[in-house]
Structure formats: C-alpha cells, structure tokens
Design a protein around this nucleic acid. Structure first.
Length: 215
DNA sequence: CGCGTTTGACCCGCGC
DNA sequence: GCGCGGGTCAAACGCG
C-alpha cells in the first residue's frame, strides 16, 4: 500500500483544552488550510493569520460553541470547526490513519524521523491561547518528543505525543514571535480513549448531582 | 526505577 | 541533484 486512502469524514477533531485551569484564555480556533502542501506552509499560514488578527482584546470568552455532551461521550467539542485535511498534505501521518504496525515498519526501515509515504491526516486543529505557559492542561498526558527552531521565529516549536499506548494524537506548541503572549497549539489526530483528568474532575460532581437529584 | 525531557542525528518533501 | 526546513527518532539525562 503506497498511500493511505482518503479518510472518510466523521471522526471529530481533537478536544481543545478544557477550562481546568483558568490561567489561560482561549481564542477562536484557527482554520487550517486544507490545501497546504507542507507543515511549513501551515506554520506560516498560522502566523499570517495571527498577523491579521484584530488587536487582542482582553479575553473574555472561553471555549466557543462547545458541545459538552458530545465531548464527554468522546466526541467533538467543536462541532462547527471540523477541519478535514486534504490528501495532498504530505507530512506525517497521525491519528487513525497510522497504526502501531506502521510505526514498526517505519522503525525498521529507517532511523530517525521523516516521512516514508504519502498519507492523509484525518484532522488537524489549531487554536491560539494567551498564556504565560506553553503547555496547556487539556486533560490528556503528553510526552515531548522533539523540539525544533522555527525559521523567522525566536521561539522553538515543541512536539508532543499523547502518552496513551494506543493513541497517536500529536500536538505542536509554538509561541508567536510577534506576540510572545500568544501560544499556537496544533492538534493532529483523534484521541481514542477518554480524558482521564476530565473524568476525574467530573465524577465527583456527577455523583453529587445524582445525590441531590434524589430530593 | 519509571517516566518525561533534551538534543543531535536522521529522513523526507519541496523549491531551485 | 542539492540544499533547506520541518518532523521524528532514540540515546542520554534528570527528576520524583
């Protein structure tokens, strides 16, 4: 198989950071260009979009249009912000389009990174936050696997992967050089497991609600 | 000791 | 074909 087939739509985009910590503010999700041919163009387009943003307002809104029911059910939190990626996106494969077998195959074939085949990324989802911290607590556990200097930026881009064994979700975190208070986070792939931290947070509340609802 | 981070090397796609 | 930039690997290291 030389290429992955076009991923049929539905799997929802990634869950955005949940408001577990009030130390950051979330802006509107960024629509990623579906026709971008490389992640480099993605990055530059992100920056361009940031450049065209209106002056940052004192952030008042948090998560836009969150479907919490779907979110808790493992679905999307942003039903209106699905961003399918085209098959012309030639860089790494993530999410459901790449499995453990492919990882093994790739590790056999080569040492180090890079992409071996044309693949389709099911979804990529980016948004900006204003935060002093680069790492947002979105309820999932991430392991950093790389960091690269970004051209025309004083700040490096960090690469993270979900630590869940069967989950191939990745995210990139980069601080804007033009406005160092803004962090751009790009998620790739779809979590195939529940958000442990979210469940930890909500379980006591749900139990309490159930208890109170009996009266 | 397990888990996460750091960091240099490697690989790939793309533009020229 | 070559160089560049981006993405990934994996050994070494740090920390609790």
């Amino acid at each position: 198989m030389d290429e992955y087939e076009q991923v049929p739509p539905p799997p929802p985009p990634l869950l955005p950071p949940l408001p577990l910590q009030p130390s950051y503010n979330i802006f509107s999700p960024i629509s990623l260009p579906s026709s971008s041919s490389s992640s480099a163009s993605l990055s530059s387009s992100l920056l361009q979009q940031n450049n065209s943003l209106p002056p940052l307002q004192p952030p008042t809104s948090l998560l836009p249009d969150i479907d919490w029911v779907s979110l808790l059910a493992g679905g999307t939190a942003f039903p209106n912000h699905r961003i399918p990626l085209s098959s012309s996106d030639s860089s790494l494969a993530t999410g459901e389009s790449r499995g453990a077998e492919d990882d093994k195959e790739k590790s056999k074939l080569r040492k180090g990174g890079g992409r071996s085949k044309k693949v389709t990324r099911p979804y990529r989802f980016a948004f900006q936050t204003r935060s002093v911290d680069d790492i947002l607590d979105d309820g999932y556990r991430w392991r950093k696997y790389g960091q690269k200097a970004v051209k025309n930026s004083a700040y490096p881009r960090s690469y993270y992967r979900c630590t869940h064994h069967t989950c191939n979700v990745k995210k990139q975190v980069q601080r804007l050089s033009k406005d160092t208070s803004i962090v751009v986070t790009t998620y790739e792939g779809i979590h195939n497991h529940p958000c442990e931290k979210l469940m930890e947070t909500l379980t006591p509340l749900l139990k309490q609600m159930q208890f109170l609802s009996r009266f």
